[in-house]
């Protein structure tokens, strides 16, 4: 059985990924439009206050974002949910920097066994190193008996 406290001691709050990227205004406006969004600052790239749609920010931290040496927990990770904290508008079409760390690890036990939750957090900075937003991605792993 995986020792959650041991994982926390070894992996929490250590940055394990950093990347530069630019969000295409067309992509974030498409997601906003498909969502049924009506606010022009999310659907119209020509709007003077155009900014990245929060769910698009959530997509940035999707996938298996774990440290390279993070041990296998046995089961297949599932997407348990996402959250976005907005601190300032995230601009599209401008350089951004994303820094990712494991923010929390916890477990819950039920009738079907133990589930382990891994929360990876991507912090998004602008070119001036100002924190604009962060996005949490919760991965859920059903622990296998032999893990």
């Amino acid at each position: 059985m995986v020792d959650v406290e041991e994982l926390k001691a070894k992996y929490l709050h250590l940055e394990f990924a950093r990347r530069d990227f630019v969000i295409d205004p067309a992509n974030t406006s498409t997601l906003a439009r498909l969502s049924g969004e009506t606010r022009p600052e999310f659907v119209d790239p020509a709007h003077p206050a155009f900014e990245v749609y929060p769910p698009f920010i959530a997509s940035l931290s999707a996938g298996r974002h774990l440290p390279i040496d993070f041990p296998s927990l046995g089961g297949v990770p599932m997407d348990g949910g996402k959250s976005v904290q907005s601190i300032a508008p995230v601009p599209a079409g401008k350089p951004l920097n994303g820094r990712t760390h494991l923010h929390d690890i916890y477990d819950k036990s039920g009738r079907s066994g133990r589930m382990i939750f891994l929360v990876s957090r991507m912090e998004i900075f602008d070119g001036g190193d100002n924190l604009l937003a962060y996005s949490d991605s919760r991965m859920v792993v059903r622990e296998r008996g032999d893990a």
């Binding site: 969502s35 049924g36 969004e37 929060p54 997509s59 996402k82 959250s83 904290q85």
Partner: peptide, 27 residues
């Protein structure tokens, strides 16, 4: 899932156009 989150953001903005969503958490 992010489109589901988008539906929820759109709902908020449709009813409360002046709202700024500071935080949204979806399970």
């Amino acid at each position: 899932g992010i489109l589901g989150m988008g539906f929820l953001c759109a709902l908020i903005h449709r009813h409360i156009p002046a709202a700024r969503i500071e935080h949204i958490d979806t399970v």
